[in-house]
Design a protein around this nucleic acid. Structure first.
Lengths: 329, 329
DNA sequence: GGGCAGGATTGGATCGTTCAAGTTGCTGGA
DNA sequence: TCCAGCAACTTGAACGATCCAATCCTGCCC
C-alpha cells in the first residue's frame, strides 16, 4: 500500500518548502517558472492530491454545494429534477466543486438540515429548487449570509436573490406561434390552477400570443391538477365543448392524457406538451424542452461568481426553452 | 453574527476540558452521568456541531458516501434511480452519513474519479448501480480496499462483494401466477435480448412459472430493445402471430408500448409492466414494484456494518418485489 | 491515617494545509 | 558604501478535532 502523500512529501521530493508547493497550487504566479515546473513534476510523479479536510479547516471553505433531492412526485416530471441534478454535478465538478444531497420532509426540518450541514460540513452554497411565494428557506439563508441560488424565480420579488429560470411564457408562446403558423386558430390550453407562478407564466405565453394574433380564446382555457387522467378528462371536455384543432398543455403528463383523448375521439387534433420528458420522446409527443443542463451550469456560474470572486455579476438568468417537434404537432 | 462554537467553547461553558466534551460525544459510557448531562446541556445551549473537517483530519473518516448519478437514459426508467437516490440520502442521513454525487462518462474516467474523490475527500464508501459482468470498477475498489456496495448482483460471481438486489424472477413469477389465477393460459413475454443478467432473470421467472403450471411458451417469448416504440412493435407481432391473452413486459416502457398496441387491436388482452414507475401509476398499468427505499436502506446497512463495526454480517441481500394491481391486469 | 486501585480529567502532540511573518540574495539609487 | 525595495523562498503558528500519556480525585481497605 502506498504511503500517504502530503504536501510535505512533495516538498521533500522537489527540494522546496511546503509553502512553495502550496503556492504552486494556489498562487502559481508568485513562483519562479523553473521551480514551478519542478514542483509540478513531483506532484504528478507522486500522484499528490490536496486533502480537502485540511484545506477546509484552514480556509473555512469546503468546495461543497448542497442540493435537495425530492421524492419523485405524482407525475412524469421527476425526470426533470433528475436531469437538472446530473447537469449540476457535472458543472460543479468542472468548477472544482462537489454536490452533496439532502432531503427534508417539511420546511422546518429543511432549515434545521441547513444548520446541520453548515455546522458540520461548512457547505459553501445551496441550490434550491421549487421555491414558492415568500419562501422561509431563502429568507433564512439570506439572513445567515449563506450563498445560494434557486432554480426557479421568486415570483413576488424578482430581484430578491440570485436565480436561474426558464422562460415558460416564451416556451408556450413559441409553441402557440408554431400552431398558428400551421394554420390552427382554435388552440386550447390545459394548464394548472391559477396562483402558481410557473403555471400562470406558461398560460400567459399562450394567451399573449393568441391575443397578438387577434384570435379569441373564450372557452379554450382549462385549469387541471397535474396528471394523465386529468389531462384526458379536460381534453375530452374541450373537444366536446370548444371544438379546438390543437391542444397546448402545461406538462407532458397533461399532454399524455390529452393525447389519449385525442387518439380516441379526434385524431386530427394537434397536441403539445411541456418539459420534453423521456416519455414525450418515446411516444412522439411534440414538447417544449427546458435547457436543464445549461440551467444547472448557470446556477454553478452564479455561485462561483459569489464564492471565488468579489466582482458582482448579473444575478438573474432567464433561459429560453425550445420547441422539440415530433409527430403530434 | 454568532461566534464560532468549537469544542473549547463548550468545554469552557460546561467547566470541563475539551477531552471530556469529546468523550461525551464519542465515548459517553466513560463519563460520569452528572458531567455528561452538564456537557450535553452546554452543547444544546450553544448549538455546537462537531466540525467534520477537523474530525476527519484526525480520524481519517469523512462520513461521506459517494453515489453515481447517471444521465437519464432512453426510457421511463430514470425515475428508478431517482427514487433509489432519495432513499439512499435518507438512510445515510439516519446513519450519520451524507451522500456525495459524481458522474463519469466512461469506466476509465469513473475510476479516475474514484481516485480523485478518495484522495481529496477521503470518502468512506461507494454505492454503485448497474454493474455488469466482470466490472473493472468493483475490481479496482476491491484492490484498493475501499468499502463499497452495489445495487445489483454481480451475475458471474454471486459472493464477490456485498450487494443488494431485487429478485426480478420472483417479480415476474408473481405476475405470471397472478395471470394464471385470472384464467390466462397464453401469456406472452416481451423482454430484453438475452445476455443481460437483469433481463435474463426477469424472463426466467415467467418461464419457470409457466413450466411449473405445465403451460407451453413456444412462440410467446420476444427480445426487444427497451423503449415504447419497440414494445408496441413486438406486442403487435405477438398479437398477430401467437394470440396471447396477456403480455408480461420487462419494463414499463415496453409495457406502455404494448398497452398502445393492445388498446388499438385487442382491448381484452392484459398487460403487466415492471418497475412501477410514475407513468404506470398514471395510466393505470399493473406493474411489478421494486422496494427501492428498502434497497437503499439495506445498502447503507451493509456499508455501516463494514465501516462502524468489525462484526461481519451477511453480505448479500435479495429483496422481493411486489405486484401492484391496477386496471390493465 | 496512609496507601492504593481505578476511573475521571487534563495538557500536549498531531492530522495536512494555508496564513503571516521572516530570511536571503540581488538590484539600484543616493 | 549603504540601505530601501523587491523577488523568491522558508519558517512558525494556527484551524478544530482526537489520541496518548500523565495527573488528579475519590472511595476503600488495612
Amino acid at each position: 500500500m502506498a504511503e500517504k502523500v502530503t504536501i510535505a512529501t512533495v516538498a521533500r521530493h522537489a527540494r522546496v518548502s511546503r509553502q512553495t508547493v502550496s503556492n504552486v497550487l494556489n498562487a502559481p504566479h508568485i513562483v519562479r517558472e523553473e521551480t514551478r515546473l519542478r514542483v509540478q513534476e513531483a506532484i504528478d510523479a507522486l500522484g499528490y492530491r490536496a486533502n480537502q479536510a485540511a484545506r477546509q479547516m484552514r480556509t473555512g471553505r469546503s468546495r461543497l454545494i448542497a442540493a435537495r433531492i425530492e421524492p419523485t412526485r405524482d407525475g412524469i416530471n421527476g425526470s426533470v429534477l433528475d436531469r437538472f441534478l446530473h447537469g449540476l454535478t457535472e458543472a460543479a465538478e468542472a468548477a472544482g466543486y462537489r454536490v452533496m444531497l439532502y432531503t427534508a420532509t417539511d420546511t422546518d426540518r429543511e432549515i434545521a438540515t441547513y444548520d446541520d450541514l453548515l455546522g458540520a460540513y461548512d457547505l459553501d452554497a445551496f441550490v434550491l429548487t421549487g421555491t414558492d411565494h415568500g419562501d422561509p428557506r431563502t429568507a433564512w439563508l439570506a439572513r445567515r449570509g449563506v450563498p445560494f441560488v434557486t432554480f426557479g424565480r421568486p415570483w413576488d420579488a424578482p430581484d430578491a436573490h440570485p436565480w436561474v429560470d426558464v422562460d415558460g411564457a416564451s416556451g408556450t408562446a413559441e409553441a402557440t406561434a408554431h400552431l398558428l403558423a400551421a394554420g390552427h386558430r382554435r388552440i386550447g390550453f390545459i394548464g394548472w390552477p391559477a396562483g402558481s407562478g410557473v403555471g400562470d407564466d406558461r398560460r400567459a405565453g399562450w394567451r399573449r400570443t393568441l391575443a397578438a394574433a387577434g384570435v379569441d380564446v373564450a372557452g379554450l382555457d382549462r385549469e387541471a391538477v397535474d396528471g394523465i387522467a386529468e389531462g384526458e378528462r379536460h381534453a375530452r371536455g374541450l373537444l366536446a365543448e370548444a371544438a379546438p384543432t390543437a391542444l397546448l398543455c402545461a406538462s407532458d403528463s397533461l399532454a399524455l392524457g390529452a393525447l389519449q383523448a385525442v387518439r380516441a375521439d379526434a385524431p386530427y387534433v394537434a397536441v403539445i406538451g411541456f418539459d420534453d420528458t423521456p416519455v414525450a420522446a418515446a411516444v412522439g409527443l411534440t414538447s417544449v424542452s427546458q435547457p436543464l443542463g445549461e440551467a444547472a451550469a448557470r446556477c454553478v456560474d452564479l455561485l462561483t461568481a459569489v464564492l471565488d470572486g468579489p466582482h458582482r455579476t448579473t444575478d438573474q438568468v432567464l433561459l429560453r426553452p425550445s420547441l422539440v417537434r415530433r409527430h403530434t404537432a
